[in-house]
C-alpha cells in the first residue's frame, strides 16, 4: 500500500534521508524508530508531498505522490504529534469540515458515531476544541480516518505526551484500524508501543534505515538492545 523506492531528501547539501526503500502492506503497522533528526518525519513529509524528494519515489497504492498529490491524499489520514484543529469550532464541526474537504459527506449521526468509535466521550462532541486535551484531539484524528475511510495512516509521534491510558487507547484504535486493512506508517519513540502495536519495525539513524524486522521476530528486551546498539 505504501512504498518508498530509493526515496531520498537533501537539505542544503545535507542528506536528511539517504536513499531508502521499504513497503507497508495492508493491515501492517510499520513503526519507524530512531533519534530525533534520524529522518522519520522527513519520510512522512515525503509521503504527504509536503516536501519534494531529491531522489526516488514515494508511492501510495502504486501512485507517485508527487505526480498525483490530490489522488494519493484521498487515501490517507495524517495525524501529527500534536493534531491541531480549529479552536473556535467544536469537535464535531472540525470533523465535518475536514471530512468535507476530503469530499466525505455523512449525516450528523454518522459523524457522532465516528467520534464515539474513536473513543471521544459524548459530552465532548459539541464542545469547542479549545477545551480539548491533546488525547482528545488525537481521537478526533482517528475519527477523521474513520470518516475518510482511510486506507493509509501516516502518524508522526502520535502518542508522545499522552498519558499511558490515552496512549493505550490510541494504540487499540490503531490495531482496530489495522484489522480493517489500513496500512499504517508511524514514527515513534515508544519502543514498548512499537512492539505491542506494530507489525513491523524500521530503525533509522542519520537518514538511513539501518534495520527492518517484524515484531514477532523479537522480544522487548532484545528490541531495546538492538535499538541501543544502532543508536550508539
Amino acid at each position: 500500500m505504501l512504498e518508498a523506492k530509493q526515496l531520498s531528501k537533501t537539505y542544503h547539501g545535507k542528506q536528511a534521508l539517504k536513499p531508502t526503500s521499504f513497503t507497508v502492506n495492508k493491515g501492517d503497522i510499520f513503526c519507524l524508530l530512531g533519534a530525533n533528526g534520524a529522518g522519520k518525519t522527513t519520510t512522512i513529509n515525503l509521503f504527504l508531498n509536503f516536501i519534494q524528494p531529491s531522489g526516488g519515489q514515494a508511492l501510495i497504492d502504486g501512485k507517485d505522490v508527487v505526480k498525483e498529490p490530490l489522488e494519493t491524499k484521498k487515501l490517507l489520514t495524517y495525524i501529527p504529534e500534536n493534531l491541531m484543529l480549529y479552536p473556535n469550532l467544536t469537535g464535531l464541526e472540525n470533523l465535518e469540515y475536514f471530512s468535507g474537504l476530503a469530499n466525505k459527506k455523512y449525516p450528523k449521526e454518522e459523524f457522532l458515531r465516528f467520534l464515539t468509535e474513536a473513543g471521544l466521550q459524548g459530552d465532548a462532541h459539541d464542545k469547542r476544541i479549545s477545551t480539548y486535551s491533546k488525547g482528545m484531539r488525537q481521537k478526533v484524528g482517528i475519527a477523521l480516518a474513520l470518516a475518510k475511510d482511510a486506507q493509509v495512516l501516516l502518524l508522526d509521534e502520535p502518542t508522545s505526551g499522552l498519558d499511558p491510558k490515552a496512549s493505550n487507547e490510541f494504540s487499540e484504535l490503531l490495531t482496530k484500524l489495522s484489522k480493517k486493512g489500513v496500512a499504517t506508517l508511524m514514527a515513534t519513540h515508544d519502543l514498548f508501543r512499537a512492539k505491542e502495536t506494530g507489525t513491523h519495525i524500521g530503525m533509522m539513524r542519520e537518514g538511513s534505515l539501518v534495520e527492518q524486522l517484524t515484531t514477532d521476530q523479537i522480544n522487548h528486551t532484545d528490541l531495546e538492545k538492538l535499538y541501543l546498539k544502532h543508536m550508539n
Binding site: 509536503f50 490530490l70 491524499k73 500534536n82 491541531m84 484543529l85 475518510k148
Partner: peptide
C-alpha cells in the same frame, strides 16, 4: 501558525 494547514493539505483539498 496553528498547524492546521498541514492537516488541511493532508485532506487532499486543492
Amino acid at each position: 501558525e496553528s498547524g492546521t494547514l498541514r492537516l488541511l493539505k493532508s485532506q487532499g483539498v486543492s
